[in-house]
């Protein structure tokens, strides 16, 4: 997947997990995870949803301290590449 494709898919997963009333199509890579409505608990749920949607396995701790969408995209880019 390209970085852009990952971001589009990630926005969709985040929208399902967050339930925040924001325009997810406008979320940029520089956005912080906290600004998108995720706290320590819902962040864990998001990680699970990412594992399911991207069909990858990793330990929750690998993503739990990430601060920005860009870091998440980079992580997924690295872990979904063939």
């Amino acid at each position: 997947m390209t970085r852009k494709e990952i971001l589009v898919k990630l926005r969709h997963v985040m929208k399902q997990a967050s339930q925040e009333h924001i325009d997810w199509n406008t979320v940029i890579e520089d956005a912080t995870i906290e600004s998108l409505g995720f706290d320590s608990l819902s962040m864990l749920d998001l990680i699970y949803d990412i594992q399911q949607e991207f069909d990858i396995e990793f330990e929750a701790e690998e993503l739990v301290s990430i601060n920005r969408v860009s870091e998440m995209v980079t992580f997924l880019e690295k872990n979904t590449s063939p």
Partner: peptide, 8 residues
């Protein structure tokens, strides 16, 4: 099982 099962 979600990773949030324990804290929830």
């Amino acid at each position: 099982l979600r990773p949030t099962s324990v804290p929830r």
